[in-house]
Amino acid sequence: MDRQILQAMREHAQRDYPREACGLVVVVDGRGKYVPCRNAAEGSEHFILPAEDYAAAEDMGEIVAVVHSHPDVPAQPSEADLVSCEASGLPWHILSWPADDLRTIVPSGYEAPLVGRQFSHGVLDCYTLIRDWYRRERCIDLPDFARRDDWWKSGEDLYMRHYAEAGFVAVSQDQPEQAGDVILMQLRAKVANHAGIYLGDGHMLHHLHDRLSSRDVYGGYWQEITRCVLRYKGL
């Protein structure tokens, strides 16, 4: 790691502490340069690097690495870090602060397990689980959709707005029948803000906020809060 880049990373981590700092390493005129970016996340436990900041860095030169800090926790990559590193196709430098410990990870084919994965909104959440299940079990790539933190609290009805675009049709109000049916649920919100995949035999796979993804019995409370059941066209 170039000493000037590392020092710039440290200074950025200190400025943004206790929030996560994020940035990019860019090669400009044959030299590496650290480009600090904004963290658009509303909370302090993760980061969202705005697309416009990424585009601005691309205009400067070639992006060769993603950087972010871990305030008050070790530089050990989270499951969300490993998944996001794979998606970016770039090395990731993680700097714990103020411990000042650096760890680098690179894409290596990592895939989060379907059961027992950690929650990270937008990276490992209930819709990500649906996308991963369909890709692994049905060889179907579902589109991703931008979603800000706590979108349901502002009344954004994202699931109902986008399910047809993702290739699904509504088949029932509350009764999944075949494996792969997607169950939309309204969990203490004004809109459908949670989803699970029916696995058959009365069980579903889902990922609740701030919990590990799990395989649970579908019925009772889950059926009470079901808004509708979707099925992928052609299945």
Rank of each mutant, 00 (worst) to 15 (best):
202 G>V: 12
217 V>D: 11
162 H>S: 12
205 L>N: 06
122 G>V: 09
28 V>C: 05
37 C>S: 10
194 H>G: 08
9 M>E: 14
192 A>F: 07
37 C>K: 01
100 D>H: 03
233 K>W: 04
32 G>R: 11
229 V>F: 09
93 H>W: 14
104 T>M: 13
190 K>W: 04
64 V>Q: 05
76 Q>F: 12
176 P>D: 05
103 R>E: 12
16 D>T: 12
120 S>K: 14
144 D>M: 05
50 P>F: 01
146 A>S: 13
16 D>S: 05
223 Q>S: 10
234 G>N: 06
165 E>L: 08
184 L>I: 12
15 R>H: 11
41 A>H: 14
188 R>L: 11
96 S>V: 08
213 S>L: 04
205 L>R: 02
211 R>C: 09
86 E>C: 02
140 I>C: 10
111 E>H: 07
38 R>C: 07
212 L>A: 14
1 M>R: 06
194 H>C: 07
143 P>G: 05
129 L>D: 11
90 L>Y: 02
208 L>V: 07
96 S>H: 03
173 Q>S: 13
221 Y>E: 08
148 R>K: 09
105 I>R: 03
53 D>K: 01
124 L>R: 04
175 Q>R: 15
21 A>G: 15
131 R>H: 01
48 I>L: 11
161 R>A: 14
17 Y>Q: 02
89 G>N: 09
90 L>T: 01
92 W>P: 00
139 C>F: 04
65 A>G: 03
47 F>Y: 14
182 V>C: 08
34 Y>W: 04
26 V>G: 15
222 W>S: 01
216 D>W: 04
155 G>E: 03
159 Y>N: 04
130 I>T: 11
119 F>W: 15
47 F>S: 06
93 H>F: 15
188 R>K: 14
54 Y>Q: 08
49 L>V: 09
97 W>L: 10
210 D>H: 15
103 R>P: 00
185 M>Q: 06
108 S>L: 03
135 R>C: 07
233 K>C: 13
217 V>H: 15
222 W>L: 15
228 C>F: 12
138 R>W: 04
12 H>N: 11
212 L>V: 10
58 E>L: 07
84 S>T: 09
19 R>P: 00
34 Y>N: 03
212 L>M: 11
221 Y>D: 03
192 A>N: 11
53 D>G: 05
8 A>Q: 11
151 W>V: 00
162 H>C: 10
75 A>K: 02
148 R>H: 04
113 P>L: 08
93 H>G: 06
128 T>W: 10
69 S>C: 09
75 A>G: 09
65 A>D: 01
40 A>R: 03
46 H>K: 13
103 R>A: 08
106 V>N: 11
162 H>E: 14
